[in-house]
Amino acid sequence: MARTVQATVNGRKYHEENVEPRLLLVHFLRDRLGLTGTHVGCDSTNCGACTVMFNGKAVKSCTVLAVRADGAAITTIEGVADEEQLHPLQEGFWEKHGLQCGYCTPGMIMSALQLLERHPDPDEETVRLELEGNLCRCTGYQNIVEAVLWAAGRLRGASA
């Protein structure tokens, strides 16, 4: 029995009818809302390419039913930048060359957003542990970690 899902995604309200209960959040975002910045990687709760912020928590959107998004506030990679101004994390990935193929990058950035909320001044080990749910098949972890640490510094500077 299909349902109606009303969700706020990146600050915009969506009203979607006929959502099948088995539809996964990642497909809802990509196929129904056209927000294809959220990637499908392993599709098996391992890689984290599909990470989004769901009611303030970073989750793997391939492992959430879309019907649970009813009433939810969701942020995807498309909602991270402020108009034309990149978020410091996005800048960090640019400055520190935190990506090679780029496939894992949206998920990495969404996880890193939560990481910096929980640990505004993280050490390298904390960054590595908190990104455990995100895999980079290019194995570019070194620069990803540097990008996150760079962004942490920028954000602390901005709030100081």
């Binding site: 709760t45 970073a58 793997k60 492992t63 990481l115 749910g133 995100n134």
Partner: peptide, 9 residues
Amino acid sequence: VGDPLVRNL
């Protein structure tokens, strides 16, 4: 348990 993303749910 799992990873930080799994632990949120």
